[in-house]
Nucleic acid binder design. Sequence first.
DNA 1: AAAGTTCACAACCGCGTTCTG
DNA 2: GCAGAACGCGGTTGTGAACTT
Length: 377
Amino acid sequence: MGGKGRTPCCDKSQVKRGPWSPSEDLRLISFIQKHGHGNWRALPKQAGLLRCGKSCRLRWINYLRPDLKRGNFTKEEEESIIKLHETWGNKWSKIASHYPGRTDNEIKNVWNTHLRKRLALKKSCGDDQSKELSSITSSSSSSSSASFQLSRGKPSVGATAELVHQSNQESNMSKNRNDCELPNSTTIQEKLDQNIPMEVTNQVRVDDAKGVKTLTISSSFSSHDSSNGSSSSQGGGISRPDDLVFDFEGAYEPQIVDKEVFEIPFESDHDFWNMLDEFVPFQSNPEPLLPQADQTYQSSNLELVESGKWLSYLESELGLEDSTKTEINNQDFVMKDATEQLVPEKYCDKLPKPAEIDQDMDDYFGMWPSWPDNSGN
DNA sequence: AAAGTTCACAACCGCGTTCTG
DNA sequence: GCAGAACGCGGTTGTGAACTT
């Protein structure tokens, strides 16, 4: 605008890029859970994320929103996408507005990977074969969401932690698409018409030899169709967040609906976030995303995982186990400071606390250093 | 079994639009 | 009304998994 050229949205050299780690997802979710997302640009800093605001927004809208519908596009959906595309062309967000819980990005991808090809084949082969082609392409697209595993690679060792996103009901949303607009869906509309309460339930299940713990946090912050949440993570190397677990009650207020009390640890709980990143089954990327702990640390951490101590630690961290049962020796479980995880070492000494942060935020983030603000904002 | 290719999709980029002071 | 900031959208790219040779 006005001759100066477009200013970059952020300093690319100082933000993390590429696939999101589970801990980043949790950070973002827990921040939005508590504070909403009024200002995307400021959010990463306030949430202690080394990400561009745009990136946060995208991650939230496309993958972390609790109202997202996971799973296959049905044939009917695909057919109607094709029809809507005939009308609107590549107006993905417009098309997406007809599919509660679907994102424009998702629809765009489905179009580019399946529907466009199908259409092209249809035209070249004629309608006789189109049914066959249709079933082929649609089964391939469906397979992409048939099942989802938290970790794509090796199975977990010693114990498993399964995060289940169980969005089992529909709900309605506000007008703004970002706030989860809910367009016309018959089932949802019916529910709305009949005043049927709608909610989404997400669960964390932690299994080990001792049994199963299920942590459920419920959400009813407006909502959408978020039927059965399962899908696969093909590319990118990071798990999609059906496996992450959150729920929102009211205006991002977490509420516990099960016997277990579970609150997502917030920024100050460095150990929790670190452990999430270090926990082998949670890592979709075998390679660390950022400067990692040294070999010694990693191997001792692995031992912890293998010995199952991590579970005790997690339980104690989450307040799931009474303290008398928690025998873990903290000396044995030295977690790297979270700052090291997210902030390259060379910047650690430059971490001022933002003066503008309000007291409430300060309470949350007092322990969490913010990225130096070089943008002048 | 290894190498090469294709597929699927998450994430990024840049531009247009909207908002705010 | 204007300028700059912020947001939203659509196109494109990067990358890991799956498949083929």
